[in-house]
Design a binder for these strands. Structure first.
Lengths: 214, 214
DNA sequence: GCTAGGCCGTGACAAATGTCACTGGCCTAG
DNA sequence: CTAGGCCAGTGACATTTGTCACGGCCTAGC
């Protein structure tokens, strides 16, 4: 009743089979090296984007998947959802920017672990072991902010408009992209700015992103 | 006549003494583990910001310093300049965003190596050995773009104004920060936008940043 | 000593952005 | 069936931002 990490095939305990996905080659390689040093961990697959991470997970059925949140093709959350739908495994998300809303979404898609990149390297192996054993690990710092932070007060369309406001597009361009009238977009942005107490759409987009809402 | 990596104290060849600075604990730890695996490399110091990197470099006089560009307190370039002014060592800059203008500034401050984080982990040790041996290593991809990219056409004040335009400040706030009149800042931003062929100050700030000018 | 160019500022104007009020369609929960 | 929320839009308006032309100050170079 512990987890998938113990005695699947042969008898007796064996190592934790791990998948690592991170788009930065240097980081990925370093993590592979670091974790392969642990006697009870074996890195069986690695990927540089979400899509191949999913393929690899299906092909190798690892015990634990360590996924970077910021990845091209499919980000960590999307990859996690797809993997967990197909493979009996556990997922740990690791991220540079620990945003409360993202944690919320991660937990909603049954992720088992959530750690920022500011975690000590030595602790990562502990987390992986915990998760492999069926436990969960959430960085306490992020958990605390996620609990105090209130839920997103924004509507879907407001979020759409804000998403595009993070780039340098004009209101008109955003309107074109969303197939809306320019005035409509302005209204959404204006109401979002009111809700978020921001002085410009850029500021609103920034705080929404910080909260992990977009 | 090779470099500082050979026979400083005892007789016979010994390992390359390395300093590693990166603000993300996980990455730093992983890099330390990875590079300590190399038989001829020994990590003698590590730091999580530019300021302590300088202190550590002075205290340990490593053969090579591996500095992340994006760090609090003092960024990689500033730390490199301060270290090279005080310690007979060599510096390798590693960065997530390989921006041509930053490479130019790095070379101006006598940095010996410049690699993006998309480098393969295995190659990093080669780079460190090259640099320790007195050679230089510049990522060929970045070198190419840096050569084709033209030099910054912007004036100092224009750069000041653009720097602040990357955040969500209003023109008035930027003016206050720079102790200038609001109209003056608008003029700077306007001329910068013309030079960079941008439709808004945000777009101008973005391209200036991409080029490594700010 | 003149001049070119960067720097700092002003004023006027046009365009983009943000605010407000209001209309109407659609859906859902009570 | 109706009150309320979200969606989409319009029009009027104030504010901010971007453009342009201009003047004065200072410094480096000729």
């Amino acid at each position: 009743m512990r987890g998938a990490a113990e005695t699947d095939e042969a008898g007796g305990p064996r190592g934790i089979r791990l998948l690592i996905a991170d788009d930065e080659h240097l980081i990925r390689g370093a993590l592979v090296a670091l974790l392969n040093l642990e006697p009870d961990i074996e890195v069986v697959a690695s990927a540089d984007n979400g899509a191949t991470a999913v393929e690899q997970a299906i092909a190798t059925t690892p015990d634990v998947c360590l996924l970077d949140l910021e990845m091209p093709e499919a980000d960590g959350l999307e990859a996690a959802a797809r993997i967990l739908a197909e493979v009996p495994t556990r997922v740990v998300i690791v991220t540079r920017h620990a945003r409360p809303g993202v944690l919320r979404r991660a937990l909603a898609s049954k992720v088992s672990g959530f750690v920022p990149k500011s975690t000590a390297a030595e602790d990562l192996a502990h987390v992986i072991r915990d998760v492999a054993a069926g436990r969960r690990y959430i960085d306490p710092e992020i958990a605390a902010t996620a609990l105090t932070a209130e839920r997103c007060p924004l509507t879907d369309r407001e979020l759409d408009a804000l998403r595009h406001s993070r780039s340098t597009m004009s209101v008109q361009q955003i309107a074109d992209r969303l197939h809306l009238a320019q005035g409509t977009v302005r209204n959404y942005l204006s109401s979002a700015m009111t809700k978020l107490d921001a002085a410009s759409r850029h500021e609103a987009a920034e705080t929404a992103w910080q909260q992990g809402w977009i």
